[in-house]
């Protein structure tokens, strides 16, 4: 585990260093390392594959353009997740203003997207879990997904979302309670 953590850190450092000398190689490594994890992170927020694709492309384009200014004050990993989260939320808000006007409508919209999503292979209980997650407030939903599915550490989540560890723990706790309540209703 420690070795994997170190190798991840070293890989991030290599990407940043290579960006200055061999951009093609740096780009390849960045994609290989992060495209899938960031895709799934965004996908759980936006549900729709097409929206996820847009947000993920925006994430990498922005990150690549700003990589020269990346000073290493934060980890490349948390920095990329932060950009991805912001891009996902921006797109989510854009869709909200475009199609719906209330939070409930947006919830329904995401639930409908989930129902009609051809790229969802889960069974009935998985679909039910996803629908329960969609009832959570936006930030609580992101916290739940990051902790429950991606198993991201609270400290890293704190850097990504700009929220204290205590608040994140409380948010996750409330999210779990609410989801369990919904699951127990049927």
């Amino acid at each position: 585990m420690q070795a994997s953590k170190n190798s991840k850190k070293d890989l991030d450092k290599t990407i940043v260093e290579l960006y200055k000398t061999d951009q093609n190689k740096a780009f390849g490594m960045l994609m290989q390392q992060y495209q899938q994890s960031l895709y799934w992170h965004i996908r759980k927020i936006l549900i729709s594959h097409d929206d996820t694709d847009d947000a993920l492309q925006n994430t990498f384009v922005k990150a690549w353009k700003s990589l020269a200014k990346f000073r290493g004050d934060s980890k490349l990993y948390t920095w990329l997740y932060r950009i991805a989260t912001n891009e996902a939320i921006t797109l989510l808000n854009k869709n909200k203003t475009k199609i719906t006007s209330t939070i409930d409508d947006n919830e329904n919209l995401l639930a409908e997207t989930l129902t009609s999503d051809e790229y969802f292979s889960g069974d009935e209980i998985q679909r039910k879990l996803q629908k329960a997650i969609l009832t959570l407030p936006e930030k609580q939903r992101i916290v739940f997904n990051m902790k429950y599915f991606d198993e991201i550490k609270y400290q890293d989540m704190s850097e990504i979302l700009g929220t204290s560890v205590g608040a994140l723990k409380a948010s996750y706790h409330h999210a779990v309670k609410k989801i369990e309540l919904i699951l127990s209703e049927d």
């Binding site: 799934w40 999503d117 790229y119 889960g122 209980i125 429950y148 989801i179 127990s184």
Partner: peptide, 12 residues
Amino acid sequence: AKLSDIPKQNSF
């Protein structure tokens, strides 16, 4: 169903 009873998997 309990959350702990549901397999943790990526269905997307």
